[in-house]
Simulated scan of single mutants.
Amino acid sequence: MSSPAFDDYLKAIYAHTEWQDAPITPSQLAAALGIAPSSVTEMVKKLAAADLVSHVPYGAVRLTDAGRDRALAMVRRHRLIETWLVREFGYAWHEVHDEAEVLEHTISDRLLEGIDERLGRPRFDPHGDAIPDAAGRVDREPFVLLGDAPDGHTGHVLRVSDRDPELLQQLESIGVAVGVDATVDADGVVLDGIRHSLPDGASEAIWLSAQPADVGSSRPPRKERR
């Protein structure tokens, strides 16, 4: 069944476990989508009936193999579109999420393939999230959430959450960007030898490479500053 609502749910379920292991609960899914818990309950039942998720009453919601495949296809669309808007149209990284939410349901597979080819088949979107390839494969190196990293840990920024556009702007203003090296400090983070205090919420919105920054890795390219 082709359904934008189904796809939005599957994408949200996938995104919840992409950077941590705990499965999503119905209340968390409702918060992520900004809708009433009762609406989530009804939709989860429909997704389960379509064999796209597994769920028991009051328990977590998990993707089935079919649900994961469909979620990855939508994630690929969303992240390719975000990358396209930044590279080709000059959007800032805090501006692309809402645009991609609309476009991901409207463009054809042919246009999506053309975008992927034109961009050189990018592996990461502007926020550092991995772009699944056409077969649904995802390439990501070991990571650690900034808030969980010990003082003195140095890694490159792998990902910055796009959930809060205002936070993205604040982080960009101090030099936080995908691909830059950062050292965790008790008072914030050190970038290019300069210590910066971090805005509220930043420690839960930035992921660093788990290995030291000078160890070879498949880091995403550094984001161009605007």
Rank of each mutant, 00 (worst) to 15 (best):
L80F: 03
V157L: 12
A12Y: 00
R68E: 14
R118E: 04
L111F: 02
G114N: 05
S39G: 14
H105C: 02
P221I: 13
H156I: 11
P57R: 09
T154Y: 05
P37S: 09
R195H: 08
D7S: 10
V96P: 01
A15I: 04
R79C: 01
R219D: 10
G67Q: 09
V61M: 04
R225N: 14
T83L: 15
D164F: 00
P142D: 09
V86T: 07
W207N: 06
D8C: 15
L111Q: 06
D151Y: 08
A213M: 06
H94D: 15
Y91T: 05
M74N: 06
V40Y: 14
F124P: 01
D151H: 07
L119K: 01
L146D: 11
P150Q: 03
L158W: 01
G120P: 00
D187S: 06
W93F: 10
A182D: 09
A31M: 13
R121L: 05
S54E: 15
I194P: 02
S3F: 02
R79F: 03
A210L: 11
H97I: 03
A92W: 02
H55D: 07
L158Q: 04
S217H: 02
A213I: 08
V190K: 09
G59Q: 08
V56K: 14
S27N: 10
A66I: 00
D129Q: 11
I35F: 11
D187C: 00
L85D: 12
D7L: 10
M43R: 15
R222H: 08
T83Y: 12
A60Q: 14
Q170N: 12
S2D: 07
P199H: 08
L111G: 01
S203W: 09
K46A: 09
A177E: 15
E224S: 09
D148I: 05
F6Q: 09
A48C: 09
L112I: 00
M74S: 07
T41N: 15
Y58I: 14
D21K: 12
A205L: 04
P199K: 05
S3H: 02
D164P: 02
D214V: 10
V56T: 12
T25E: 11
V190M: 14
T106F: 04
S217A: 13
D214N: 11
R87G: 05
A100W: 00
V44Q: 02
H78G: 02
D65I: 01
G114C: 01
H16M: 13
V215K: 03
D65H: 00
L119A: 03
F124T: 03
Q28A: 15
A50T: 08
E88W: 05
A30Y: 03
V189M: 14
I35R: 15
V160A: 05
S197A: 11
I174W: 00
S173N: 07
R226A: 10
F143V: 09
S218W: 02
Q169S: 10
L103H: 04
E172Y: 00
T183S: 04
D116G: 02
A177D: 12
A71E: 08
H153P: 04
Q28G: 13
V96D: 07
A5W: 00
Q169T: 12
I35G: 11
L111C: 04
V190N: 07
H78C: 01
R76C: 02
D125N: 05
P37E: 10
A73S: 14
G179V: 09
R62A: 14
